[in-house]
Design a protein around this nucleic acid. Structure first.
Lengths: 210, 210
DNA sequence: CTACAAAACGACCGACCGTTCGTAAATATT
DNA sequence: AATATTTACGAACGGTCGGTCGTTTTGTAG
């Protein structure tokens, strides 16, 4: 929020806190997020954080929202510029991998980490992550359905196909730091390409893809 | 370890501790594992744990080994009873899913959870998990290679295929608690079956599979 | 310049953590 | 039965955590 062109004092720190908190939460876990560490890393006092968020959980939820907005801007929107159909589905997969290749920032995917972390821990956080995952899978399924309706695919259920795309993306960001970015991302791209080639009606559509 | 047919006193508690610790670590995270909680859940004193493991990290490493042994007995060995080739590759996928369907125990897959948790946290734990993952992928790749050498598959790189199998398994145990076991496992099975059908030379091999 | 409101601060609290240590109980040995 | 040795125990320590509160600093308006 801006007033007269200048940043309100608290607003600048607000986004700075969310950036730092997202970074730390991605590395140490959303639950392992330490308010003390966030404050120290920014050179502000820990108690000052409670002026913006009433509790740690409130900050955690804000971090989730922050990550969601970032994901929308940097992955979903660019992918939607590709032509609808199989190529758009591939574009999303490619953008996702590129998103993690670009930033050498450690910690992998915040959402994947958080989902695994809260897999068996019911509560507000778990519910919020569940809604995000539901929306994301619905979006992927819609893309797969569009590809089928376009006549690009044959004999394919959109659900399992969306699940396959998601699986390759999730597993890639998990294995990349351990087994090496090069081989992991190559496998993730190659596996989906092989699959699409096998189920696409007109393979020439895929010729331009790497 | 047994002496004269009777359990040494400490040994019974040792495996009980590892079972409980594995359960808690799967839910709360390997780093979120609390020695106090382990001791309380078993009705033993916290300080007594240090007689068996010199530190929390030592117990964490023992838990990893415990999980590995369990995984070998309940997933790998049964799958190896299937005939070599595509059917054995499918059997492993199926056994893995059945392993998590059978135990309604919450927390998903310990190894997946731990890998994501320590993705960006170098150290002894990270190294140990990395070796496990490396071995596991090598095993999967060997199964895929066998399927190719058997003549079951066409135009397929074993590496990406192994990566695909692993991806579907990992993602299934991540989504199952959130989106429901039924739809998630169905998608995980269907996606691999579709893929195998598309790349198998003799589809009749897959007829018997669900 | 003064006065007011918002925001950041530092000190502090209770809770939980991993770890250590002296002691008591349980087992093994003579 | 008495001794020696292993094993588990409870209390306590230092440290970090999330959260609270009174004070001081900062920015704004009259």
């Amino acid at each position: 929020m801006t007033v007269d062109g200048r940043l309100v004092r608290g607003e600048r720190t607000r986004t700075a806190v969310l950036d730092q908190a997202l970074r730390l939460a991605t590395v140490n876990g959303l639950d392992g997020l330490s308010l003390s560490q966030v404050a120290d890393a920014l050179g502000v006092s820990k108690s000052g954080l409670f002026a913006h968020w009433r509790s740690k959980q409130a900050l955690q939820l804000a971090v989730i929202e922050h990550a969601r907005a970032q994901w929308t801007d940097e992955v979903i929107k660019p992918a939607l510029r590709s032509p609808r159909g199989v190529r758009r589905l591939w574009a999303l997969h490619d953008r996702r991998l590129a998103f993690y290749e670009a930033r050498v920032l450690p910690g992998g995917c915040f959402f994947a980490n958080a989902n695994f972390e809260f897999n068996a821990r019911p509560g507000v956080i778990r519910d919020r992550l569940g809604v995000q995952l539901d929306d994301w899978m619905a979006f992927l399924t819609r893309l797969a359905t569009e590809a089928v309706e376009n006549g690009d695919l044959r004999r394919v259920d959109p659900g399992p196909l969306a699940f396959l795309v998601e699986s390759l993306g999730v597993c890639a960001v998990m294995q990349a730091p351990v087994l090496g970015h090069d081989v992991t991302f190559r496998h993730a791209r190659r596996a989906l390409l092989d699959h699409l080639r096998a189920v696409t009606t007109d393979p020439s559509i895929l010729a331009e893809l790497s």
